[in-house]
Lab assay of single mutants.
Amino acid sequence: GKMTGIVKWFNADKGFAFITPDDGSKDVFVHFSAIQNDGYKSLDEGQKVSFTIESGAKGPAAGNVTSL
């Protein structure tokens, strides 16, 4: 299901971020390909987002990341 959280930090050079979920679970890795914005895919620290949890090769990662 959809979860919500806050972007903890975003590394534009490497194209990934971490989200701190609102439910208090541990921070979730985000690859820029999961960001659903049109055009430039970036996130801002402190931004509120919704996302799903996908199981990636290196463990859980956020999918369908959308700005709220």
Rank of each mutant, 00 (worst) to 15 (best):
D13F: 05
S55Y: 12
N11W: 08
N64K: 05
K41A: 10
I35E: 03
F51Q: 00
G59T: 09
A61N: 13
G63M: 05
G5E: 00
K41N: 13
P60T: 13
A62C: 15
K48Q: 11
K41M: 12
D44G: 14
V49K: 00
K41V: 11
N37H: 09
Q36V: 14
A12T: 11
F51Y: 13
M3K: 10
D27W: 04
N37C: 15
I35S: 03
K41P: 11
A61I: 14
I53M: 10
L68W: 00
G59K: 08
V65N: 15
T66Y: 00
I35M: 07
P60A: 09
K8C: 07
K48R: 14
V65R: 03
K58P: 12
Y40R: 10
H31T: 05
E54W: 06
W9D: 02
F16S: 02
K2H: 10
K8A: 04
D13W: 05
F18T: 06
G59A: 08
P21S: 02
G24K: 03
S67C: 15
F10K: 07
T20M: 07
I53A: 05
G56N: 08
P21L: 07
I6S: 04
K58M: 12
T52Q: 09
F51L: 02
V65A: 05
S67K: 04
D44L: 14
F51A: 01
S25T: 08
G39L: 12
Y40S: 10
F32E: 07
K14H: 11
F32A: 07
D23N: 07
I19L: 03
K8P: 00
G63C: 15
D13N: 06
A34W: 10
S42R: 10
A34K: 12
G46P: 01
K41R: 10
A62R: 04
A17M: 08
A62K: 08
K8G: 02
H31F: 08
N37G: 14
T52G: 04
I19Q: 00
N37W: 12
T52D: 08
M3Q: 09
A62L: 11
Q47I: 08
I53F: 08
I19F: 01
S50R: 06
F16M: 12
K2T: 14
N11F: 06
H31C: 15
L68E: 15
Y40M: 10
S25A: 04
K26W: 05
K26A: 13
D38T: 07
P21K: 01
V30N: 00
S33P: 05
E54D: 10
G15V: 02
T20W: 03
S55G: 12
S50H: 07
I19V: 07
I53P: 06
S50E: 10
Q47R: 06
T20F: 02
D38R: 04
Q36T: 11
F10E: 01
S42V: 12
Q36I: 13
M3N: 04
D38V: 07
D44C: 15
S55A: 12
D27A: 08
N64E: 11
A57L: 11
K41H: 13
Q36P: 05
T52E: 08
D22T: 05
K48V: 07
K41G: 11
M3L: 08
S50W: 11
N37T: 13
W9I: 04
V49Y: 01
I35C: 07
P60Y: 01
G5R: 00
Q36K: 05
A57C: 15
V7W: 01
S33E: 12
Y40T: 09
K14Y: 13
S33A: 08
F18Q: 11
P21G: 01
V65T: 14
H31A: 12
G24F: 03
G5Y: 01
D13G: 06
Y40H: 11
E45I: 14
I53W: 10
K48L: 08
F32N: 03
S25P: 02
G56C: 15
V28G: 00
A61V: 14
I6Y: 06
G15T: 09
G63L: 05
S67R: 04
N64A: 07
I6E: 03
G1V: 14
V65E: 15
A62I: 08
G15N: 06
T52S: 09
E45H: 13
V65P: 07
I53S: 06
